[in-house]
Design a protein around this nucleic acid. Structure first.
Lengths: 236, 236
DNA sequence: GAGTGGTCTAGACCACTGA
DNA sequence: CAGTGGTCTAGACCACTCA
């Protein structure tokens, strides 16, 4: 394994473990070079790769800093619903209509790789744009991974926003499909039963440990997902 | 603009223009360094970035080569339907049930940035997996961008596969949404009218010039899209 | 104005692999 | 076994920007 990969991994580990928090300053290239016993160019290669991946932000004259998880999210296409609505110039509000800490069901344990007695915080949230239903969110947060979630008031900050701001994630698996709205979904989203809806399931990991899973149900006729790719700029 | 960016762009241009074809050998690092009057490290940075982007493949002892567009596609998440079905171990077949060269409508001209008399090849194709309807494809190919498409027999090679193999693309815009199947779609896909379907619209460009647009309609209950992201490896 | 990252160099050694 | 990419070095100059 090349030296620059070692250095990159070392810094990544310090970020993922939480030793380095978003906004913290990373030692300068000279310091890291001395610390690892390599030339500055080698350190530069590691830091450039991290900046390219969105984990760090580099600024001349001031140094390299751990990126806010939010900016990471943009690059990796996990969007915060609240920001998305506000950026579109619409009013945002949300309602938490169910919240429980409980033992995970078998299916949930499988999805989040939890042990037999693993507990989760289960939340049902609805988001509104300009007071119209925008999306339903059904979320599970692993208590083992995020114990402090138990005491957070998610009626102030919606759980997606809170998690994106606090938890650096390393992997995410998305699944997208279309369903016909069942009665309960239709009622919440103010649709007729059977209207096509877009369903996004996402499980998020932090260095191998599952953190949260979420199912987002959008009215199919009111919402579109867009993604632009450029060859050579991979997803930017 | 840094020198390595110039060199990268110069090579990209030669690939996109078609001067360098897939499989062609790119001059070695020493040669490029001499040609551009820079050190080998600078050329290396340009070539590494191109390899990272999937445009070139680098092999020790033999050199750097223009990548097959197919491998590019994997990285950038445009999947070939035929390969997708075959990789899943299912039988593949497709039917072209409509094919016309015609002047683009106003909406199509807008989507493909065509002039008033711009012509397109319009294709309607259905794909089957194990003889069950898998997806409907409605495709427009800009005659200006791909004149040779007029004479291709797309009943042998489906248009998506043909295009992926021949045309290096540089940008793609995806839009995903859910619809209730109208009568015609339902009949083709062997669904009841109103069944939720996943619709993917994609417009593809080659260095600023639109090449093709396609609408793929999947039965929502039979198909899921999955994507995995890793922080620091962006979409790989 | 000074410290930081951004870039570049000329040279070096090595690992791999295909001719 | 020779040619190619992969990596690394020690040093340099510059541009930017924050203190």
């Amino acid at each position: 394994m090349p030296r620059y990969a070692d250095i990159r991994r070392a810094i990544e580990d310090r970020i993922i473990s939480g030793e380095l928090q978003p906004g913290d300053r990373i030692p300068g290239e000279e310091d890291l070079a001395a610390e690892h016993g390599v030339s500055r160019m080698t350190v530069n290669k590691a830091l450039s790769a991290l900046a390219d991946a969105g984990l760090v932000v580099r600024r001349r004259r001031s140094g390299s800093f751990v990126a806010a998880p939010g900016s990471q999210a943009t690059i990796l296409e996990i969007h915060d619903i609240k920001s998305e609505i506000l950026n579109a110039g619409r009013r945002y509000r949300h309602v938490v209509f169910s919240r429980r800490v409980r033992v995970a069901t078998a299916a949930e344990r499988a999805r989040l790789s939890l042990s037999a007695k693993g507990r989760v915080l289960a939340l049902s949230v609805q988001h509104f744009a300009d007071d119209r239903p925008f999306v339903l969110e059904e979320r599970l947060i692993s208590i083992a991974a995020v114990p402090e979630a138990r005491t957070v008031d998610f009626s102030v900050t919606p759980p997606g926003t809170w998690l994106l701001e606090r938890i650096p994630w390393t992997d995410a698996l998305h699944t997208i499909r279309a369903i016909n709205a069942p009665a309960r979904v239709a009622a919440r989203l103010d649709l007729r039963v059977g209207t096509a809806c877009l369903v996004i399931d996402r499980v998020t990991w932090r260095s191998g440990a599952p953190v949260t899973s979420v199912r987002l149900t959008y009215p199919g006729d009111r919402h579109e997902l867009s993604a632009r790719f450029s060859a050579g700029h991979r997803g930017r």
